[in-house]
Simulated scan of single mutants.
Amino acid sequence: MTVWLHVVTSVGWMGQALALFTLLAISRATEDGEIRVAATSMAHEIDTLLLAPLANASAFTGFMLAAGTAWGFTRHWWVLAKFVITLVQLYAGIFLLSGALQDSVAAARTGEQAPVALVAGTALMASAIAFQAWLSIAKPWGKARSGGKLPTAPTWVFVAAVAAPLADITAGLLLGFPLPALSLIVLIVQLVRRRRQLRPTPAEVPAPAL
């Protein structure tokens, strides 16, 4: 179920990024001021109500799959690449894209076009997600580091990995803005569990040489 939700939300994230690209491209191409304002405003609404919750859920389920299975975060190059790309996308989406979209709505009302960088950024976001999908299928580059097999989390962890983002999406739609609070709590709990599991027991710690 966690893999299913990760795939569904990732496809949704890419689809909404393409929708933003299309709307912003229309806002730049049209000479009609009303269409420009409508297209830019719709892009902002899609970003807030759809893209952001889907992006949060996609990232969270991906992190949970890494934290709850033998794959880990840094044992394989392709997983590490996905992890880094996801972090960059989340940062860009939260701190750059959302603010720029809001500014573009105000600018469109004065007759200005959406910035080229904003249009290119949405295309780059969709392309990055498509590249991550390829990484998941091809699994290139081998292992980043060796080590024993990581333990798989119990079933309740993966149940929580599905329930938490769905609850957060519902809460976000009711509040009018994304709020991945429960997802963050579940992820932190699992990271703490994994850290404790990887600690050597007293019997495994070598005795000091005399």
Rank of each mutant, 00 (worst) to 15 (best):
E45Q: 15
V88T: 10
A59G: 06
Q113D: 13
A171S: 09
L54R: 08
T69N: 03
G172W: 04
L179C: 08
R109E: 13
R75P: 07
I169V: 15
E112W: 10
A57N: 06
P115M: 04
Q102N: 15
E112H: 14
A161Q: 00
E112I: 09
L96M: 11
A55R: 14
A138H: 05
L96E: 12
A106Y: 02
S104P: 08
L101M: 07
P140G: 02
F95T: 11
L182M: 04
V119G: 03
L174V: 10
G99T: 02
A126N: 07
L184D: 05
I129Y: 03
I137C: 02
F131P: 03
F83C: 06
L65V: 00
D168V: 00
K149W: 01
G68R: 04
H76V: 08
S146P: 00
L135I: 02
L96A: 14
A163N: 04
F177N: 06
A100Q: 13
A161K: 00
V79G: 03
V119K: 07
I129L: 13
W78T: 06
A55C: 12
A138S: 05
V79C: 09
F73Q: 07
A130V: 04
A163Q: 02
W141I: 01
L87N: 08
W71A: 14
I137L: 14
P115N: 03
F63Y: 08
K139N: 02
I85R: 01
L135G: 01
S127N: 04
A161Y: 00
P178G: 11
A181S: 11
N56K: 06
A181V: 15
K149T: 14
G111V: 13
F63H: 10
S98W: 05
N56F: 12
G148I: 02
I94E: 15
W78D: 10
T155K: 13
S127H: 06
A67M: 05
T86K: 07
L54N: 10
A160P: 08
F73P: 04
P140H: 06
A133S: 09
A100K: 03
L97W: 11
L90H: 00
A92Q: 14
G147L: 00
H44D: 09
F158L: 01
L80T: 11
G93Y: 01
W78K: 09
M64L: 14
L124Y: 01
G172Y: 06
V119Y: 01
T48V: 14
A130C: 06
T155Q: 07
V88S: 11
G62L: 07
A106M: 05
G142R: 03
E112Q: 15
F158R: 03
F60P: 06
K139G: 00
P115C: 03
G172L: 05
H76K: 14
A160I: 08
A100T: 10
R109Q: 14
S136R: 10
A181K: 14
L184Q: 08
A144K: 15
T152Q: 08
L173S: 12
A66S: 13
L90P: 01
Q89W: 10
I169A: 13
V162S: 04
P151Y: 00
P154E: 06
T48L: 15
P180T: 01
